[in-house]
């Protein structure tokens, strides 16, 4: 008998930069939605500001969808993409 284990593919939540939103607002939302500390939220905000995007979460598709929806609800642009490293 062979047992095959299959890992579910992981998905990334990518936070995208915009030129309008106040930085402290973005940091507050990232802290609130992902439970980041101030330094981690600020790091993601600056990464998105400088590079246009920051991967803020990796995990199961359903949870990733919920995170992207929440970010959109706070008017922060975000998208989902497969995590190629998983």
């Amino acid at each position: 008998m062979s047992v095959r284990t299959e890992r579910k593919a992981a998905w990334r939540v990518v936070f995208l930069n915009d030129a309008v939103t106040r930085m402290s607002y973005a940091v507050m939302v990232l802290r609130k939605l992902f439970g980041f500390d101030e330094a981690t939220a600020t790091k993601h905000m600056l990464e998105a500001h400088e590079q246009g995007r920051s991967v803020v979460w990796v995990g199961m598709r359903e949870n990733a969808e919920a995170h992207v929806f929440s970010l959109q609800q706070w008017h922060l642009s975000a998208t989902l993409e497969p995590d190629e490293e998983s």
Binding site: L16, D18, E65, V68, F69, Q72, Q73, H75, L76, S77, A78, T79, L80
Partner: peptide, 26 residues
């Protein structure tokens, strides 16, 4: 009109339609 357009892949059009209505309500 959504303040932030949805950025989802073409494979997610159904999801986008549902989200759009919920996000507009919010």
């Amino acid at each position: 009109h959504l303040a932030v357009p949805l950025v989802l892949s073409d494979a997610d059009t159904e999801l986008a339609a549902v989200w759009r209505e919920d996000l507009l309500a919010s």
